[in-house]
Lab assay of single mutants.
Amino acid sequence: MPVRRGHVAPQNTFLDTIIRKFEGQSRKFIIANARVENCAVIYCNDGFCELCGYSRAEVMQRPCTCDFLHGPRTQRRAAAQIAQALLGAEERKVEIAFYRKDGSCFLCLVDVVPVKNEDGAVIMFILNFEVVMEKDMVGSPAHDTNHRGPPTSWLAPGRAKTFRLKLPALLALTARESSVRSGGAGGAGAPGAVVVDVDLTPAAPSSESLALDEVTAMDNHVAGLGPAEERRALVGPGSPPRSAPGQLPSPRAHSLNPDASGSSCSLARTRSRESCASVRRASSADDIEAMRAGVLPPPPRHASTGAMHPLRSGLLNSTSDSDLVRYRTISKIPQITLNFVDLKGDPFLASPTSDREIIAPKIKERTHNVTEKVTQVLSLGADVLPEYKLQAPRIHRWTILHYSPFKAVWDWLILLLVIYTAVFTPYSAAFLLKETEEGPPATECGYACQPLAVVDLIVDIMFIVDILINFRTTYVNANEEVVSHPGRIAVHYFKGWFLIDMVAAIPFDLLI
């Protein structure tokens, strides 16, 4: 008679799926529990143990900040960024110097990925580790590398530091407007667009060049630039800015003055950032001319202004700041037409079709709590990747769950009947059967004279019903998954307890 339990259901295979997918890609990662103190490590794979030199037993239950890997060259700011990422709910990448158990130093890129439950609360953290440099290539500990984003994938490793954006290309926007319009339909740009040429040739750093990471940081200074100062900065030398009595002219307006920039070969870094931020506020060169004239017309309804409409929906549905990093990277690809469009465009503009998908598509409701890094690593669709929660398995109709209350009560009843059979069957065979043979035949009273025979008949009927119930009862397979398919249940029961239950259900007393 089957006594099969499996009270692990309803099970959740999400954690096993993450481990299996990460292991298949030869990654070095740990999984931490966000619900406990210090976000203790609950799993670390073999790749991480080989990377740091510690065994799994030495890593388990330690804080996922990996303070046991810190050393003299470990930056405090990087460690603080990892700790801050564990307090938030967004994906974050941090470069930090770690030390192995043998004392060797290596520069590592740590990717902190939160995993949320159905309520939107962070319950786990996945920390992925990628070695960037070994100890002989690690720089000085005073050099802070965590304020910069990861290198873009479309640049060669040897040319990542030679990417320079020439400031004269930004200063000569109005001069290039006529050349853009003359391109017409034969050019790649839309009317009114501004073409910015980027020099990728390796050259020595000069005062006129600005690194790509500095251009990325310009967006942080746009908020500090007032509207009046932006307007004066875009007017140009024809209309000098008016300053109040006793007030000095704005240095932001002076930063885009061609006369002032041409007199000296070098520009201050602050002026460069502010000038680029001011130019980015204009949607095209037409807006710059309109600002000089004193009238700013409404933005025209053409394809170039609607190019950012799908980007707005993608940004609203993005799951991490990696989408913004990807957008900034692609927006700086050289030799393309940049349409400086305000994100607050007309909502009635139709979304044009684009061959290049900048932001990841909208994630469906079932995966809105899973970050983009987890979705990318697992390579699963929205119909396959579940949320991290207890999910009731989908069972067929008329199927009994093996952990249901009805099955528990039924098993206790069958257990009592088995005990009765084990006690009274030998007793009936030894004593009652002998008395029946010696006594007179009682054929007239039937079952009324033999109450134990009636009980034995009921017990046999219950055993037959138990066999039928076992054909529709779920079970737990070797992978700790609840199986509810009727065919698989029948095959599993035939290979197991079916023969024993059938022999126990045969009414031998009635056959004798």
Rank of each mutant, 00 (worst) to 15 (best):
S272N: 07
S284K: 07
S318V: 08
L256R: 12
V113G: 07
A350L: 07
G246T: 14
A268V: 14
E95A: 05
L256G: 07
T319W: 03
G246D: 04
V325N: 09
H221W: 10
F29E: 01
P150C: 06
I123P: 13
V131G: 11
R292E: 14
G262D: 10
R281I: 03
C276G: 09
E208L: 06
K373F: 14
P258C: 10
D16E: 09
N12L: 11
E58H: 05
L212I: 14
I359N: 06
A156N: 03
T152N: 03
F348M: 11
L171N: 15
M133K: 14
N257M: 15
P310K: 14
H254W: 15
S182I: 06
I18W: 10
T201F: 05
L311G: 11
N38Y: 06
L225S: 01
F98P: 01
E208D: 15
G88C: 11
V115M: 10
L86M: 10
R273A: 14
A290W: 15
A34K: 06
E134M: 06
G24F: 09
M124P: 01
V194H: 05
S266Y: 07
S304L: 12
E134W: 05
A79E: 03
D136G: 06
H70D: 01
G71K: 01
L324G: 07
A244F: 01
A40W: 05
R159T: 11
V113S: 14
K344W: 06
L225M: 12
G262L: 07
A217T: 06
S243Q: 07
R27F: 09
A203H: 15
D144E: 11
T353W: 05
D346A: 07
G314Q: 07
A169Y: 12
D136I: 11
V194N: 03
S320C: 13
A83T: 14
G24Q: 13
D16Q: 14
A32T: 03
G306S: 14
A303Q: 11
Y54L: 01
P251K: 13
E134H: 14
V279E: 13
F48Q: 01
V115F: 13
L165V: 06
A142M: 09
R148E: 15
P258K: 03
A211K: 15
D287L: 12
A172G: 15
V112A: 02
R159M: 14
Q335I: 01
P151R: 12
T17S: 07
F48M: 01
L51A: 03
P2T: 06
E50N: 12
N33V: 05
G6Y: 14
T329M: 03
L127A: 01
A193W: 01
P202D: 14
C66I: 08
R35P: 09
P2W: 06
I82R: 01
G183K: 11
F68H: 01
K332Y: 04
E90H: 14
A350G: 10
N339R: 02
K116M: 13
R73S: 14
L267G: 11
K362S: 08
A188N: 06
L165P: 14
E208C: 01
G186V: 09
L248Q: 15
K161D: 11
M218R: 13
I123F: 06
V341G: 15
R148Y: 05
A57W: 07
G246Y: 14
E91P: 11
M133E: 13
A260D: 15
E230W: 06
N45D: 01
T305D: 07
A285T: 12
V194F: 12
G189D: 05
N117K: 13
A211V: 13
P299R: 08
A285N: 15
L349Y: 07
P258R: 11
W154H: 10
A156K: 13
D259R: 06
V36Y: 15
P2H: 03
P237E: 14
F68D: 01
F125N: 12
A185T: 09
S320P: 08
A268G: 11
G314A: 12
I358F: 15
R77D: 05
D323A: 12
L324A: 14
A350S: 12
R181S: 08
R252T: 15
S318Q: 14
S322R: 09
M218C: 15
P205E: 15
V131N: 06
